[in-house]
């Protein structure tokens, strides 16, 4: 095994280095992450067990862990909704992005680079503007609803926006590039000859996909679903713009606790729970799909 490791080190050009150079390269960036990512997470943890003090905006540490239970109980519904919407959005995004990435990787010929640019291009228009554009396209005065109503496909009282459907598709839309690019990257790495080999060995199109293409693109599927699910589950913009009050997600609750109610401990407890829940899910997911190094 040791010999094998040596060989792989040679291939990837990794140098064993006893000098301080790699650490010098790491220090500035990692210090930044330590101070502005790790320390704040600890602050958040501390805040989550505090109780309100005498003045508004003042909190005293009393290690009240029941904050977690209270916060969770008061927003169970939004919590579950965040995960449900995130999951649905991820599935929709995967269903849209996989064939798209496949087409770009294997069927685009000389157009490949241009199509890749086109996948990222919508990303350059502020995502708020695009989300608001959806709201107006699908909204009460928009073209879609009026056409569907004239054709009697939906009734006068039915709207598309202000619904779970609008929030979930909005989430799927917004994070589509995050799904498409990792999928493309892993599909593009597949040697097309292995797919031909599967066909040669009596696998039809569907079996080739199931037995060869899909397993080989798993790293992309894992990366893409994570990059979509994580921001989708924590998002509150889509719920605010495209949803109704009954579509509020956990992000809406945290935001309101911070800025409207100024209940920092409850907001911190909810943030912490959200982060922990997502990290646990990721760990289970990556273990089960057998993907170790994600970065």
């Amino acid at each position: 095994m040791a010999a094998f490791r040596g060989a792989s080190a040679k291939v990837f050009g990794l140098k064993d280095n006893k000098s301080a150079l790699p650490y010098l390269l790491l220090i500035p960036g990692l210090l930044w992450l330590a101070i502005f990512f790790i320390v704040p997470i600890f602050s958040l943890g501390q805040m989550s067990t505090k109780v309100p003090g005498a003045d508004i905006g003042e909190f005293v540490q009393e290690y009240r862990f029941s904050n977690y239970i209270d916060a969770f109980n008061s927003s169970k519904e939004q919590f579950l909704r965040s995960f449900l919407y995130g999951l649905l959005a991820t599935i929709i995004a995967l269903a849209i992005a996989y064939p798209l990435a496949y087409a770009i990787a294997f069927k685009s010929g000389k157009w490949k680079n241009i199509l890749l640019v086109l996948v990222v291009a919508p990303f350059f228009v502020s995502f708020l503007l695009r989300t608001i554009a959806w709201k107006q396209i699908l909204g009460e005065e928009g073209p879609v609803v009026s056409v569907l109503r004239t054709l009697n496909i939906i009734s006068v009282n039915t709207s598309i926006t202000s619904s779970a459907f609008a929030v979930v598709t909005g989430l799927a839309y917004n994070f589509l590039p995050f799904m498409t690019l990792p999928l493309y990257a892993s599909l593009e790495r597949i040697d097309p000859r292995t797919l031909e080999a599967a066909g040669d060995l009596y696998a039809n199109g569907f079996t080739t996909f199931r037995k060869v293409t899909l397993p080989l693109s798993m790293p992309g599927v894992v990366a893409g679903t994570l990059l979509t699910f994580i921001p989708a589950a924590g998002d509150y913009i889509n719920a605010t713009i495209l949803g109704s009050p009954s579509n509020k997600m956990l992000g809406n609750v945290i935001e309101a606790r911070f800025f409207k109610i100024v209940d920092y401990p409850a907001a911190a407890a909810l943030s912490f729970t959200l982060m922990a829940a997502i990290l646990i899910l990721i760990t289970i997911y990556t273990k089960r799909t057998g993907t170790e190094e994600l970065v």
């Binding site: 040697d191 000859r193 031909e196 080999a197 060995l201």
Partner: peptide, 15 residues
């Protein structure tokens, strides 16, 4: 996949 033919590919194309 219906042909009674098999191929040894250039660079092998092992899965």
């Amino acid at each position: 996949y219906r042909r009674p033919v098999n191929t040894v590919f250039q660079n092998y194309a092992l899965f």
